[in-house]
Design a protein around this nucleic acid. Sequence first.
DNA 1: ATTTTGGTTCAGTAATTGAAGAACTAAAAG
DNA 2: CTTTTAGTTCTTCAATTACTGAACCAAAAT
Lengths: 162, 162
Amino acid sequence: MQIKKQMEDIILSDVQKQLIERLGVASEKEGLPPAPSRILALLMVSPVTELTFDQIREHLNLSKSATSTALNLLLTTNRIDYITQSGDRKRYFKNRIGNWRENIKGSVKKITNSADVLEEILNTRPDNTPEFNKDLKDLISFLRFMNDNLPALYRQWEEQND
Amino acid sequence: MQIKKQMEDIILSDVQKQLIERLGVASEKEGLPPAPSRILALLMVSPVTELTFDQIREHLNLSKSATSTALNLLLTTNRIDYITQSGDRKRYFKNRIGNWRENIKGSVKKITNSADVLEEILNTRPDNTPEFNKDLKDLISFLRFMNDNLPALYRQWEEQND
DNA sequence: ATTTTGGTTCAGTAATTGAAGAACTAAAAG
DNA sequence: CTTTTAGTTCTTCAATTACTGAACCAAAAT
């Protein structure tokens, strides 16, 4: 087969490039390294949502190894996914934005978690710091309250969103 | 005045030390460097809530410089505060846990912010990726919904908590 | 059978971070 | 006015991060 598959040349406007940087920086603040952050942002902004290893690599001026490592990190942390097409060895990577509901659940879970740690702390605290203990108690109470009520709030959004 | 002020020797149980580590690691995940994270955790767990430079320094085995830098970071980011006592040059540092309401407000603000970025991205997206766009749209809608409804939920907690 | 494709893995490196230590300083005590 | 206290600031150092480039490899194409 001589017909070389035409690489879809994704061209991004300056605005789109800026959005990649902005979103990339946001991901870095969440603790992701720069390269994975950029990849994730590219897969969010690119008009073509499914990009090959080399498209990503070229667009972000990364080395093969950096691209490989970053993609594998994103894959193992469930932030991206890839599909294949029969008769094409390439993998097409895509942002798993459809997973946002799962991600939100994860964030809520983290709230429970920190409430638990704070509660353990509260249990070790002496009685002679009532103001401090009250603040801590309130915070824990608030976190638990949020935990209990967020699911209902989510369902409420779901309804109005149908 | 010859009476050397007795340094209140804060002694922490193993459980409390572990809690400091756990809470410290949690802070590191939020992007704080190790030393500030430990200090913040110590000021949460310590039965004495107001500690001097040297008490902190000694308890965490930090150098003076590390202690100084870390404390100043925590001060400028409003995570701790200090009080003084007349006729005592030392500053007594304390965790500003009472500020948790402010902090929560900050987190909510961050939701708005990311919704804004995502909306900008949505506006640049082509029409030929309807599934992706729908997911993005839903996420934005959900974030906005949360933003609009969280204040009321907070007030609800406030009432039940009186 | 050998070349190309689509990567992975490894060794090395440059930049950044986080802390240590020593020198320094301003205010208060002696 | 000298010393002590309560830190700050500066230089240095070690560890870690985030990448590059080169070698490598398995499957598919030629």
